[in-house]
Structures are given as structure tokens and as C-alpha cells.
Nucleic acid binder design. Structure first.
Lengths: 341, 341
DNA sequence: TTGTAGGCGTTATCAC
DNA sequence: GTGATAACGCCTACAA
């Protein structure tokens, strides 16, 4: 059996209450003599408070739950790494749940977090193919009544919630405008499911840029699949069939898929086709040619999310419960000016 | 205040004990009438047991701690994803701790896990630059007295521990033999710190292969830095200065660094130099040319680790507390036969 | 300045 | 079959 507060009390010849006061630096004056006795006993017995018991009585677990679609995706890997690191400094543990974008798994984790009485939940990209599922999940969260921060890509919500996101329309706009500036006119989109809010918004940004240039968006130039390399590989032949000179890949993984396909078709980037991605995964710098991409400010997302969850947990009303961050275009070598061959 | 077992008991007109029996399917016979009453009350009140209280009394938290150097590295990202998914099916939560290979952070997490009374700890790559730190950490773990599984890259240990690893010597051996078979004779190594066991073992495998071919390992061909892209970039010019025709990069990240440097020096892979990596990160298939690499069986590592921790937690004595898995050579396009130019 | 005792939400051991 | 009741380990009024 592990050593408890009673053991310490006994060893120091005081009551458990006194030990507790000392451990928690309570504002009660305690004689230096007893304090030292107790500290010594704690040290000798290697006493550590059982956080389960502490949580039960204080009603705070110093734990937060983090839900994300897939920590294997470098974007989310970085995000969770940042969040976790920030929370560690507050001695808050993070329980991670990968949902693979599956509503059932999402629900399972939400339940698990609630049962474990996490102090808060950070939720990345709660958005399912079937909108009903998304709404259902949001209702569950509302009933859970746990401080929640929605991160990156979200639907609306009310109550004890905050939202941190990156302007997704701006992402689509920046990517497209960059290509337009280079002289491209037929620009394909390699997107994930257009039922997902992110993709919708990126596509809207794309259209906005086109319209600013007096062009009419051509629905044939939108290829939808999933945000994976696979999508890129399939998108390339399809979009080339529609005579595009550039492709806006809705994330870097998709762009990599296009790179791969280009090799098979013996197509050169950027001479034959320009590519721009989204996320600025670290490999985008390494791949050949280095990928032009729209970066999302991951550290900022993480720190805002952590700040927001801390405020909500403290029960303070946040100044703004909606934060929108700006994406950034990183021009590399996968895009070049249009040449009419 | 959330609904407790007492509320349910009151609503159903029974005692808390009865409710508890029903919830936990205890082998006590309970009349169908009361059972239904209770189930109905649970349902109506949306009652869920507070796991903190359950844990306190049952002495099991259904939580395990996972410590890894860096979840941003795709290898560890995949590993943790696999582990987490397997444990979810047992309704076990995972607290993740990224240490950045820092002994202090490692200790902090170990303490946190212990305070939270995790049922077990899975520890990836507990190996620090300073061997004393490694030993110190192992001692802490021993004192913690928590079931622990060491995963991938480990030093010895005793007690309530199991080890799952991949034969690191074999990794070095397979990589080097592949290059030797292709006719290469001056093979450089781009390694992380040679004080770390992994790197030592991979280097031993390298030497073993050379010796089998009647060659004498040349210490000048060992470049040590860190297992990152940076290392690769620095290693290339240095090793070229020693006339190598091939490089064994101690992981794929290092190999990517070499790719990057090759572009700057206008060196072609594999025509001018052959490269082999380790880990088979998903990008290794995508990069151009696709990287020949030694794959570690991540799913197997994960499932063995989970099995092992379950056995230890159950208090069973494991059949074998040491499992060694085999790496696999994946030949792609970054290696080709030696041409004396 | 320190100790006593009640309670946090459960489970589990006895009685009835 | 079901219900008190004592733990589990800790915090915190309230007393002393």
C-alpha cells in the first residue's frame, strides 16, 4: 500500500489536516518546528498526494481532453504537441483521442472524458460528412457542460465555449490570388469532401479570388475526394483533362499526391503545372520542388486555445470567445508564371 | 451538481448499493422489478459513474501514460496513434507526454503519471545523451512501482517491466548489406549521437556487414549529429569529402536532409550517391526519388506493447518479458548499383 | 497553532 | 434480494 497523508501525519506526530495545510500552502500559520517535521516526514516517506482523491474532493482533475481527427497528420501532430507542451507547464495532463473523423469514436471519447471529469475539452475539427452527426455531437457537448474550445474548423455554438480558428476563406483566397498573379487562369481545386465546412470555405475563397479577376468559376475544375495523398493522385489526371495550368491542393498531403502522380505522368512541377498546398507541413520544404503553401499559425492556434480553455475553466468570462487567425502564403518553387505553350 | 449514485437510488427507491450492483453486473440476484426501476432511473437522470470515485476505491484508473520523445516525428506519431487506438477498445485512456528527450521533462511526466495513479506506463526510447540520466530515470521508474513497458530502444531493467523492441543491429546490418550487394564499398553513416544505444547498435550492424564483406570500418565515415534533417544536410558535404558512394542515414528524417543538401550541391540520387534510411515514414514513398529504407513494424510494436501492459496490469506473469521484432528492407529508387566513374 | 470530523462518489462487506 | 455502513485518500470548516 502506498503512503498516505495519515502515514505522514503519524510519522511527524501531527494530524492529517496539518500536513494538508502545509502541502497546499494554505494561509494558516504553522510553527516552523512542525513545518519542518512534516516536510521531513514527507521527504523520507516519499509521500505524494493521490491526485484521484484530491480531484474527487476539489472537483478539478487537472486534466483536459484533446480530440483530433488524426495525430498522424503532421498538422495535428504539431498542434497537439504545442498544446500538450503549454499545458504541461501548468501541470495539466492531456488525454488524447484520435477519432479518424468517426462520429462514434468521437462520442466515445467525449463520454470517456466526461466520466473522467476532465476540466476542459479541446476539440479540433468537429465536422463530419453527415451534418446531422456534427449537430448531434455538439448537442452532446452542450449537455456535458464542460468548458470546451473548438479549434480550427468549426460550426457555431453557445455557452461555455470558445472558438479559435484560422480564416479558411482567406486560405483559399491567398492561394488562388497567388496563382492568378502568376498569370494562371484555369486553376483546378483538389479538395476533400465539399460537405465539410473547411473545404467549403476554402472553395469560397477560391471563387472570390477568381471573381475579383473577372473570371467565372468552372465547377468542372473542382475535384473532391478526401484530404489525403490519394486525392491528389486521382485529381491530377482528372484536372489535366480540363486543361488546368495550376492546381490548388486543399492541403499539403493532397499536394504530395499530385507530386507523386506527376512523376508517373512525366509532368514537371512547376514548368508544366503549378501547385500550391495548405498547412506548410515540414516536408513541404524538403520535397522537390519545395512546395508553395499557405501556412496556418499552429503555435498561435495552440496558445490561444490553451489560454481560452484556462479562462473557461477558471469560470471567467472570456473577453472574446471567438478568435480568428490569419494564414500566411509561403512562396516556394512549385509555382511559376503561366507560359502559354 | 452532477447526478450521483445516491440520486439514482433515491429516484428508484432503492439503496446506492443496489444501484452499484446493477451497474457493475455483480453476481448478486436482483429482482427484475428493481433492476428495471433502477435502469430507468439511470436512463432518465443520465447518470454516469464518476470515474474518479470509482478509481479511488477500486485502485485502478483505466488510464495509462505514454511517454515519447516527440510526437511530431511521424514514427512516434504512428506508434502513439496505434497504441491509443488499441487501448480505446478497452476503454483505457492515454495520457501522452512528449519529452523532447529532456530528462527533466521525462521525470515530470513520470511523477504526473504516478500522482494520477495510472495503471501502467508505456515508455518509448528512454535513452539520454548522458547515461547517468538514463539510469536515474530507470531508478525512478523502479521506485514508482508501476507496470511499465519499454518500447523501441531500451536499456535493461528488472521487475514489473516488459520490453518490446526492434532489432536495431539488424537494421544497420540490412541497410549496409543492401548497399554492399549493390557494389558500394565506401559507405558513410549519418547518425545521431553515438552515445544513444539505438545509434550504437545500428552502427554495430553496419560494421558487422562490412566485416562480413572483408572490409575494415573507417571511423571517418561515421558522421554524428542528431536524428534530424539538419544532420543529413551537414553530413553530406562531410562524407563526400571522404569519397563515399552511398550513405546509410540512421533515419528517414536524416535522409531527407541529405536529399535537400543534394539539391544544393547538384548531386543526383541515386546516380551520384545512393541513400538508405530507417523508419519508412509515409513521405519516403512520396519523395523523389522514393527512399529505400528499413521499416520498423509499428503496428506490431504497438500491439505487443499493449498486450504486454495489459498482462502486467492484470498482475499475470508474462510468458516472455522481452520481445524483439524484425525490421524489413524496402527497396525503392534511392539506391542503385555502384558505378566507378 | 493544531486537531476532529464530515464529506467527495464509489465499492464492498456484512447483516437483515 | 436488499440495505446499512465502512472504507478509499484527501480537503476543509469548525473546534479546541
Amino acid at each position: 500500500m502506498r503512503v498516505t497523508i495519515k502515514d505522514v501525519a503519524k510519522a511527524a506526530g501531527v494530524s492529517p489536516a496539518t500536513v494538508s495545510f502545509i502541502i497546499n500552502n494554505k494561509p494558516v500559520s504553522i510553527s516552523t518546528a512542525t513545518r519542518e517535521k512534516v516536510l521531513k516526514a514527507i521527504d523520507e516517506l516519499h509521500y505524494r498526494p493521490n491526485q484521484l482523491a484530491v480531484s474527487l474532493v476539489t472537483n478539478t482533475s487537472n486534466t483536459i481532453g484533446l480530440i483530433l481527427p488524426d495525430s498522424t497528420n503532421p498538422f495535428f501532430a504539431s498542434l497537439s504537441h504545442c498544446i500538450e507542451e503549454l499545458l504541461r507547464k501548468h501541470n495539466i495532463a492531456v488525454i488524447v483521442g484520435n477519432t479518424n473523423s468517426d462520429p462514434d469514436i468521437t462520442r466515445q471519447y467525449l463520454q470517456l472524458f466526461s466520466d473522467k471529469r476532465v476540466d476542459g475539452i479541446i476539440l479540433a475539427q468537429l465536422d463530419f460528412e453527415d451534418e446531422q452527426e456534427t449537430i448531434a455531437c455538439q448537442n452532446i457537448i452542450r449537455h456535458l457542460d464542460i468548458p470546451t474550445v473548438y479549434v480550427d474548423r468549426v460550426a457555431n455554438s453557445v455557452g461555455q465555449h470558445s472558438i479559435v480558428e484560422v480564416d479558411q476563406r482567406q486560405i483559399g483566397y491567398l492561394a488562388t490570388r497567388h496563382l492568378l498573379n502568376l498569370g494562371h487562369r484555369r486553376i483546378g481545386c483538389a479538395s476533400g469532401s465539399i460537405h465539410l465546412t473547411v473545404n467549403q470555405q476554402r472553395y469560397e475563397g477560391y471563387k472570390k479570388a477568381l471573381i475579383e479577376y473577372g473570371l467565372t468559376p468552372d465547377p468542372d475544375l473542382l475535384f473532391c475526394d478526401s484530404l489525403s495523398t490519394n486525392c491528389g493522385s486521382k485529381a491530377l489526371p482528372c484536372l489535366l483533362g480540363h486543361n488546368v495550368s495550376a492546381i490548388f491542393a486543399f492541403n499539403d498531403m493532397v499536394a504530395y499526391g499530385i507530386y507523386k502522380a506527376c512523376r508517373n505522368y512525366n509532368i514537371s512541377i512547376p514548368d508544366d503545372i503549378s501547385i500550391v498546398g495548405v498547412d506548410d507541413i515540414s516536408f513541404s520544404e524538403i520535397i522537390n520542388p519545395p512546395l508553395t503553401t499557405i501556412a496556418q499559425p499552429i503555435e498561435k492556434i495552440a496558445s490561444h486555445a490553451v489560454e481560452a480553455i484556462k479562462i473557461l475553466i477558471n469560470g471567467d468570462k472570456p473577453e472574446h470567445n471567438y478568435i480568428c487567425l490569419h494564414p500566411l502564403l509561403k512562396v516556394r518553387a512549385s509555382t511559376t508564371s503561366y507560359k502559354n505553350l
